[in-house]
């Protein structure tokens, strides 16, 4: 199985994702520069975390116009799995591949900490190996993760069960104090209506080995492999 990890100028979790795929999952991975126009036959595309194009204008606003994004868009339209992590999530929102938008965190603070997220659906490539209601502890690190969708869009997302992860307490309860950034309905991750494109603010690649302080990110990463194997 081959992963493509897209490298934008300013990406800084690209090598972490590449490491997790090759060394932890034991799969193939290619780091692909944003100006390239070939996904090299990848089975799954990861848009990694970081600060693509310096986060100038809005997070992800410029990255969506990188040449490789035309290929990513076509890949997604063919049903290929695309996973956006943190800045990758912001890019997918700006590119219109996922619904909604990101605002500055409610407290204006860059939040870098472990959070608890509850799996809301297993019908996505990022959660196919989890169980509904499972609580995962995975780090976040962002200043603009305050997910927003206007009321009509939010209703559609909820009705279609496109919310993939929600910020909760350690025992899986919704609590405003457990919402690190003010995201509407405590949304930490959403998918598109076809369910093959998933964006998430937590970083599973930062929680995939005991030495990193946790392994709950493996549930997400191994889900991708499972979804592709059983597809």
């Amino acid at each position: 199985m081959k992963f493509a990890v897209i490298v934008f100028p300013g990406s800084n979790c690209d090598h972490d994702a590449h490491y997790a795929v090759t060394q932890v999952l034991g799969q193939q991975s290619a780091l692909i520069w944003h100006k390239d126009t070939d996904l090299q036959g990848a089975d799954v595309v990861i848009l990694p975390g970081g600060f693509a194009h310096g986060d100038y204008l809005r997070t992800g606003a410029m990255a969506r116009f990188s040449p490789i994004m035309r290929e990513v868009q076509a890949f997604a339209e063919r049903g290929g799995p695309v996973i956006g992590i943190c800045n990758g999530f912001q890019i997918l929102l700006e590119a219109g591949l996922l619904p909604g938008a990101m605002l500055r965190n409610r407290g204006l603070k860059y939040r870098c900490e472990h959070v608890h997220v509850r799996v809301e659906t297993t019908d996505t490539p990022a959660t196919a190996g989890a169980y509904k209601g499972q609580v995962l502890t995975i780090p976040i690190g962002h200043g603009e993760g305050n997910y927003y969708a206007p009321p009509d869009l939010l209703k559609r997302i909820e009705d279609n069960q496109q919310v993939v992860l929600r910020y909760t307490t350690a025992d899986g309860r919704l609590d405003d104090d457990a919402n690190p950034n003010g995201s509407v309905n405590a949304i930490a991750s959403v998918c598109n209506d076809r369910r093959n494109v998933v964006g998430m603010m937590p970083h599973p690649e930062r929680a995939c080995e005991p030495a990193l302080g946790g392994t709950d990110g493996l549930v997400i990463l191994q889900s991708i492999v499972k979804a592709l194997t059983t597809a």
Binding site: L57, A61, Y148, L153
Partner: peptide, 8 residues
């Protein structure tokens, strides 16, 4: 196309 995000 670029300067504003119509969602927000």
């Amino acid at each position: 196309k670029l300067l504003a995000n119509p969602v927000i």
